[in-house]
Amino acid sequence: MMDLILFGVFPYVAMTLAIAVGFYRYCFDRYSYSSQSSQFLESRTLFWGSVPWHYAILLILSAHLLAFLFPSLWGSLLGAPGRLYLLEITGIALGVVTTIAMLVLLLRRASNARVNVVTTTIDWVLLISLLLQVITGVYIAITMRWGGFWYVHTVTPWLWSLVSFSPKIDFLVNMPFVVKLHAVNAFFLVALFPFSRLVHVVSIPLAYVTRPYQLVIWYRQRNNQL
């Protein structure tokens, strides 16, 4: 029963929250849709947290996403021991880096008086869940090798079963506790997304690359405008 709630129901709750509240916040409180950087208050330590964290977590997340979206492609990519090993140790190393970086970020928030002032309870919840997520991730990657490979045949079908609204929780029920924790915490983070400064993940300003440098906005209709 508990398993059904955790792996069959909670993901839907989390996704619903993320989408509904995310949209609500975007429409009615767009002002708050940012990461609220604290670099201005403390820059040196932040560098050692933020830069490795973001780049490493982006790579790790895209690997998770790739294995979910294109399982057969991912399967054939890992179908050679050399490639498998290279990807796995890179993944583990990136995971270790995210753990270090998240510890740096947490310690910074705790120890710097200025940064502490702009830290709210939800920030702590978010940071600690992120830390839990990367620690369990690294633990799984090291003690249950090779996660990148079995993910495609366990987690991917589970996720797709969720997408098709016929959750097959069997895939996770017999997994070790730490894998379950990793999965549930992942959806907890999804649920946390609209309530925390995690909203900044959807404000990636890619349009910047194509827009012209200067922006001019007219508040009046001009005569020559057609």
Partner: peptide, 14 residues
């Protein structure tokens, strides 16, 4: 996993 199982099961090396 160089060749996938016909029914799509996970390769043993995983």
């Amino acid at each position: 996993g160089n060749i996938s199982f016909e029914e799509g099961g996970a390769p043993c090396l995983a």
